[in-house]
Computed example of a mutant assay.
Amino acid sequence: MKRKLVYVMSLRNAAADKAGQWVAYKGERRYMMSPLEYLVHQLNDSELGNLYSLEALIYDDIADYAADQAKLGSYGRAGRDGSPWIYPLDLCVQGRPVNELLENIPSTYRSLPVGDPARSSGKQAFEQRLQQRFQALEADWVVLDGLIVILDELVRPGAPFQGRIVNIHPGLTRQDSPYRRRGATATLDALYGARGQQILNWQTMATRAVTPLNKTGASFHVVDQGIDSGPVLWEVLNTQIEPDDTILELRWKNFTHSLFPALSHGLAYLASQPQGS
């Protein structure tokens, strides 16, 4: 029996990557395939399609929140009138249009001012809505990709989906790895690291000199209540960094050489484990 996957993401993160678009790359143009589109191709064309079914694609962006709409830009029109979208509009997964799987469960608490006491209860309500939807879909595994939210209630010890939510992260997350790059700035951290710099404060851009590291990778890990701190199921360290890379050039390389393999091998590993393990 196929295991049921639910995919959760922030569209604004995919928009920042120029997902689904052709981007400048070393004087050429290359297609920026998103992890979601890569997964769809794997489910259509590889053994993963015999192991999993994709049940839903949930995104947390807030339709009437100006900050989210500014980050989405023209992606906010979802491909209408020739506007960009994160995957080809005719993309299908296992015979079903991907657009039919799209669902919005907005993390509306983020629109409240920092310090507003309602943010905490709003975050709990958001995670409860996610859990209810996962349960209704009878999800076996939930894959996070660029979800710009730190989960708490969903992954606390004893929660129904604790240990069943995994994340694909564009950096190594093992605590003991010299290439460890956790958090939302993982790709930028790697790029500056290749230049022998560590950013100490992203507001002031204060730096300190470090030994240059010219490689980065990706991790497929279980989600816990920390920031990319859960147990690593699969990692790939196969992306060479050139100091003159742009952020999008490095993003393209890391997707292609490390993150996509980590995603496919990680899912294959999960499928090899006993149900409920």
Rank of each mutant, 00 (worst) to 15 (best):
L11I: 07
A159G: 09
Y59W: 02
P97C: 03
T173N: 05
W252I: 01
Y7C: 05
E28H: 12
Q273L: 14
R77G: 13
P157E: 04
R181P: 00
P35C: 01
N167D: 04
I150F: 13
G95H: 06
L112R: 01
F126K: 12
R119T: 06
L172G: 13
F126Y: 15
E153F: 07
P231Y: 02
R80D: 12
F255K: 04
A67Y: 07
S219P: 03
I58K: 09
E47A: 15
A139V: 06
P97R: 02
P106Q: 11
K18Y: 10
D17H: 05
V98R: 02
Q135A: 14
G122M: 09
G79M: 03
L154E: 06
D68I: 12
D90Y: 06
A268V: 00
W22R: 14
V210H: 01
I199W: 03
Y65M: 09
K253I: 04
E242G: 11
A56W: 14
Y87Q: 06
W252S: 02
Y192R: 03
N99R: 13
K71I: 00
T239H: 02
Y192S: 01
L144Y: 05
A190W: 07
S121W: 01
Q203G: 04
L43S: 03
L137C: 11
M33G: 09
I165W: 09
Q240Y: 00
Q225F: 05
D45P: 03
E242V: 14
D189R: 00
D176K: 14
L89W: 00
Y75K: 08
A136K: 14
V114R: 12
P106F: 11
R12E: 08
Q225G: 10
I86L: 08
Q94M: 13
R174S: 11
Q225C: 10
Y65W: 15
G171A: 04
D64R: 11
D140G: 14
I199S: 02
I62V: 10
N104K: 11
E127L: 11
A19W: 09
V236E: 15
G27M: 07
V210C: 00
P84W: 12
L213V: 03
Y52P: 11
G73E: 09
S34H: 08
L147A: 00
D45M: 07
R195W: 05
Q124A: 15
S229Y: 09
G79V: 05
N50F: 14
L137Q: 12
